[in-house]
């Protein structure tokens, strides 16, 4: 088994054993979609494309938020506990360690985001009083765009949590989330006019997501062991 897989599997297992994180994730995955489904159903009025657009619009912020929640367990906790220092002594590069942890964050964050999407669709169908079939573009959005954005968010937030001190992380944590949400909202508003789902919007989101993922990888490559060790509380 590769070290990437070893690290990622451990993070997934730890996430599944962290009741606090799981409860927060599940509440958010259910409560937020149910609340927004009201608006989606009312605005779409039974139009499947409009419902798909509404769901696509909320799944990216939900995915980013899930990434943030699970990052706090995979990166920040390890640093707060000091166990990261032991991991840095293992025969694994820092880049590989970051990749494994980010992957371990993406898996539970993606699954809970899919749950949120399913809840949104179910609630919107119930409120529209008619089953709403999933649009092919929405399926593409969920299968490709969402995981890329979750990976970008997990990678960037994880790299920041490794590099920054506890206080800076507390201050900047929500700044990251809101930054992502404004970016997503801005792209959706500019490309698709804020409603519906379009191939152009999905293509732009995918390209921006991949660019952010590359940026996350670049930033993670600049983080040093010394920087991490000196910011352990």
């Amino acid at each position: 088994m590769s070290t990437l897989s070893v690290i990622a599997r451990r993070e997934v297992r730890l996430a599944l054993r962290n009741r606090g994180v799981l409860i927060t994730a599940f509440i958010f995955a259910i409560w937020f979609p149910v609340m927004t489904a009201l608006g989606i159903a009312a605005a779409a009025g039974g139009d499947a494309a409009a419902v798909a657009g509404g769901i696509a619009a909320i799944t990216l912020p939900v995915g980013v938020f899930m990434g943030y929640i699970f990052c706090s367990d995979a990166f920040l906790r390890e640093k707060r506990d000091g166990t990261i220092e032991t991991l840095l002594c293992a025969p694994v590069s820092l880049q590989r360690l970051w990749e494994g942890k980010a992957l371990g964050v993406v898996v539970p964050a993606y699954l809970t985001t899919l749950l949120a999407a399913a809840v949104s669709m179910g609630a919107a169908s119930a409120l529209a009083d008619a089953p709403i079939a999933a649009e092919p573009l929405l399926l593409l959005h969920l299968a490709a765009v969402v995981p890329v954005w979750i990976a970008a968010a997990a990678g960037l937030i994880g790299a920041a949590q490794l590099a920054l001190g506890m206080r800076e992380n507390q201050i900047l944590g929500f700044a990251f989330i809101f930054g992502f949400i404004f970016l997503i909202g801005g792209i959706q508003a500019v490309v698709s006019g804020g409603s519906g789902i379009s191939a152009t919007a999905e293509a732009v989101l995918a390209v921006v997501g991949l660019a952010l993922l590359a940026l996350a990888r670049f930033i993670a490559g600049k983080v040093t062991k010394e920087r991490i060790v000196r910011t352990i509380p």
Partner: peptide
């Protein structure tokens, strides 16, 4: 680094994992 071992004050262990799982993780690394 594979030829060197280290024990810091915090032991490098996860409280949520079992003793065997903790060791299995490092065995994989």
């Amino acid at each position: 680094r594979a030829r060197v071992g280290v024990l810091f004050e915090n032991n490098g262990l996860s409280d949520r994992m079992s003793a065997a799982d903790n060791l299995a993780y490092y065995a994989g690394l």
